[in-house]
Design a protein around this nucleic acid. Structure first.
Ligand SMILES: [Mn+2]
Ligand SMILES: [Mn+2]
Ligand SMILES: [Mn+2]
Ligand SMILES: [Mn+2]
Lengths: 222, 222
DNA sequence: ATAAAAATTTAGACAAATCTAAAAAAAATA
DNA sequence: TATTTTTTTTAGATTTGTCTAAATTTTTAT
C-alpha cells in the first residue's frame, strides 16, 4: 500500500502535511515558499503526486493529501522525530542541532529499522521539541496545547512544545534558559508590540516578543 | 578539503576503492559490473570524478583514487561499518540484515553525527562481519588474516572476518553455525573440487565449497 | 463592470545520471 | 603480421527535478 517515494517526493509530502493543518487546500505559492523552489516546479510535482494518488489536485485550486498521502506523511514524520529523539537522548546532541540531521535520516525507508529504533528508544511519545511521535500505525496524539501568547497574567504554565523547528528559535530559548518542562508565568503584557515580560523557572525575568510567544506551547501547571 | 558528493558519486568511490585493493588501475567494465550500470555511464562518471580530483583517469587505461579520493572512500566505509555495528549491537539486527540498511545510512554525511555515534558505540574497531572500522582520521587496521582455503589440515583456527558482504553467504554461514569467533578445523580436503570437510565449534562436521572457503578469513587459534 | 494585481500554469531549457547502439581502440589469436 | 574479439568511448535519448519567461486564470481594487 505504501509506495516507494523519492527523497524529493517525500519532502513535498511533508511540506503539504505541514501546511494543511486546517483542512483548507494548500496553494502552490505557499508550497513553493516552504520548499524554496519555483512555483512552476511545484505545479509539475503536484501533477505527479496526483498521478500516484498521494494528493487531490485541481489546477488553480490547490491540493490536499489523500488518506494514503497522509499515511506517507505520518511515516516520514515518525522517522524524523524518532531520529531526533535518538540524536538528542543517545548521542548527546543539543535540541537545536538535531533537526537538520534528522532531515536526512528521515529518508532512509526501512520499516524494520524504524520499528527497532522505536523499541530501542523505549517507544518515546514526544521528540525533543515536544512534538508527538506517530506510532507504527500512524496514530498521532492530538495535542491541545495553548500558545503562550494566549495565557492570562500570573498563571503558571509549563512549556510542553515548541512550534517552530528552526535552530534560531532554539538558540534564543537556550539563551533564556527556557526548555521543555520550564515553568513560565506572565508578569506584564505590553499592548504596543504584544511583547511579554515573564518569569521563567521560578526566578529569571525575561522579555518575550510576540513572535516568540506564538511559538511556545504550554499547559497549565498543577 | 572533503567535497560534498552526491549519493551516486559516493557509491562509485566505494566501488573503486573495493576494486583497487592491489594498486592496479580499475577498469571500466569491472566497475560497471560492480555497480550494475552500463559501461558508458561509468565512463561519464569517471570524467566527472577526474574533474573533481577524486580519481586519476586516462581513457582506455583505467582509474585510481587520488589521495583525496581515498580519504573520501575511507570516510564512507567508516560510516557504513559504524552503522552496521549500531544496527547489530544496539538494534538487534542479524549480521545478514545490516548491510543493505547501512548502504543507505552511509550517505548521511554529518561528521559530528558519525563521531558521536562512534563514541556512543564505544569506538568499536570491527563491524559485525569482522571488517575493520576506519577512525576519524581515516586510519584503518591492515589485517593479515588467512583464507580458510589456505589453512593446513588439523590446525584449529578462529573465524575473524567474512570476505563478502552479501546476505547469501551470511545465510549459509548461519545455517552451518559459523560466525565471528567460531573455531574451525579442516578434516579433509578434496582435490576434485577443492571442497573441505571441517569441524566447526568443536563438534559439528560440515562441508565447505571452495568458493565459501575463500571468503572465510581466519587466524591461528591459541 | 473594468482594469490592475496576484497566483498559477504552460512552454522551453538545463543538469545529473542513466540507457542503447555505433564507433574506436586495445588485446588476443591465428 | 593480419584478423578477430574484447574493452572502452562517443553519440544521441530518456528520466527526474529544477529553472526562467510568458501566458492564463483568479482575485482584488477602482
Ligand atoms: Mn524537526
Ligand atoms: Mn527531508
Ligand atoms: Mn557491509
Ligand atoms: Mn552505498
Amino acid at each position: 500500500m505504501l509506495l516507494n517515494l523519492s527523497y524529493t517526493e517525500e519532502n513535498y509530502i511533508k511540506a503539504i502535511y505541514r501546511l494543511e493543518q486546517d483542512g483548507k487546500p494548500v496553494n502552490t505559492n505557499d508550497l513553493s515558499e516552504q520548499l524554496r523552489t519555483a512555483a512552476a516546479s511545484v505545479t509539475d510535482m503536484l501533477k505527479k503526486l496526483k498521478q500516484k494518488k498521494i494528493v487531490h489536485y485541481k489546477a488553480y485550486y490547490g491540493c490536499n493529501l489523500t488518506d494514503n498521502g497522509r499515511k506517507h506523511a505520518l511515516m516520514i514524520i515518525r522517522r524524523h522525530r524518532l531520529w531526533e529523539y535518538f540524536l538528542s537522548k543517545k548521542l548527546g546532541f543539543n535540541w537545536d542541532e538535531v533537526h537538520d540531521i534528522a532531515e536526512e535520516l528521515e529518508h532512509v525507508g526501512s520499516t524494520s529499522l524504524i520499528n527497532k529504533l522505536d523499541a530501542f528508544l523505549g517507544y518515546p511519545r514526544f521528540d525533543p521539541h515536544g512534538d508527538p511521535i506517530p506510532d507504527e500505525q500512524g496514530h498521532i496524539i492530538k495535542l491541545q496545547n495553548k500558545l503562550l501568547s494566549a495565557v492570562p497574567l500570573h498563571t503558571p504554565v509549563e512549556v510542553v512544545q515548541i512550534g517552530d523547528q528552526s535552530a534560531n528559535i532554539l538558540e534564543l530559548l537556550n539563551e533564556k534558559n527556557i526548555r521543555i518542562g520550564t515553568i513560565l508565568e506572565i508578569r506584564k503584557r505590553f499592548s504596543y508590540d504584544q511583547s511579554l515580560e515573564i518569569k521563567a523557572g521560578g526566578k529569571q525575568i525575561t522579555q518575550i516578543s510576540k513572535e516568540l510567544s506564538q511559538n511556545i506551547l504550554v499547559q497549565e501547571h498543577e
